[in-house]
């Protein structure tokens, strides 16, 4: 069944822009990205939109639909009530390039700042063996498709441009957590770096990153809060710190 829907699409660039109204047909089962492509093909030939897989796995078509950060390819048109206008804008936490395309290079710079995994020197490449229970926590974080919706919705940088210098964002907190929970990673001070260099302490646990994650990664509960607790172990818990000095317990490096 085909129906007409009304869209408001943000058109513009870094200098100026506005929401433009457009009416377009939507077929049964179509997603928002489908109707954007129809608008592009029939009414706005120069509409800029980034997309790739159309299967919710590449993370390219991140945008804001009715104010919520979402993947356009995973948002069913039918999920909106008939007659409701659908407003589509670029991600509002990043600099706009054109129309629905933003410059997400901030995230790649942050990715480079995260210290890499440090392999034990006495363990030859390929010789590492780990049990499933030791890696399953990290496997959840490996589902990340780098759509950066969590980065977009995080108010620490969305509402405070100046914090981008000192805050890595939820996507990279799960990367840090993944490495810190890695049984073989030997890097010292990963927890302290998370707090002092990557801005873990700026997160106030409002869980928006978890709410928007299309992979349903429990970013706050399984990565950020465990990292905050690990930071408490090394920075704010003198008894725990003393215990590690006396008994050389694992997990605190």
């Amino acid at each position: 069944m085909t129906r007409k829907i009304n869209l408001r699409i943000w058109r513009g660039d870094a200098t100026d822009g506005a929401l433009k109204n457009v009416e377009v047909e939507a077929n049964e089962g179509e997603v928002v990205l489908d109707v954007i492509h129809r608008v592009q093909a029939t009414q706005m030939g120069d509409l800029a939109v980034r997309w790739n897989c159309k299967a919710g796995k590449c993370g390219s078509c991140s945008m804001e639909i009715n104010g919520k950060p979402r993947l356009a390819c995973m948002t069913q048109v039918a999920s909106f009530p008939e007659g409701e206008e659908i407003t589509i804008t670029p991600l509002r936490a990043f600099p706009v390039i054109k129309d629905l395309v933003t410059d997400v290079s901030f995230n790649y710079r942050k990715a480079m700042e995260i210290p890499a995994y440090e392999h034990p020197k006495d363990l030859a490449p390929g010789a590492a063996r780990m049990e499933q229970v030791d890696v399953e926590r990290s496997q959840e974080f490996r589902k990340c498709i780098e759509c950066f919706l969590c980065q977009d919705v995080c108010h620490v940088i969305r509402d405070h441009e100046e914090n981008k210098k000192s805050f890595a964002g939820p996507r990279f907190f799960i990367r840090i957590a993944e490495l810190d929970m890695h049984p073989l990673d030997l890097l010292k001070n990963r927890k302290q770096k998370a707090q002092e260099e990557h801005g873990l302490g700026m997160c106030n646990i409002t869980k928006c990153c978890t709410e928007v994650c299309p992979e349903h990664i429990r970013i706050t509960d399984n990565a950020i809060i465990p990292m905050k607790e690990r930071v408490v172990d090394v920075k704010y818990d003198p008894i725990r710190w003393l215990g590690t000095k006396i008994r050389k317990r694992e997990g605190i490096v």
Partner: peptide, 29 residues
């Protein structure tokens, strides 16, 4: 801070739980 996801907060500055008094949240344990 924020009132809801993707709703702009009213504060001009934000330092989170990095300084007093909110750094005391680390006393949770």
């Amino acid at each position: 801070s924020p009132p809801a996801c993707a709703v702009a907060e009213p504060h001009e500055k934000y330092t989170g739980e990095t300084r007093a008094p909110l750094i005391l949240q680390n006393a949770h344990r």
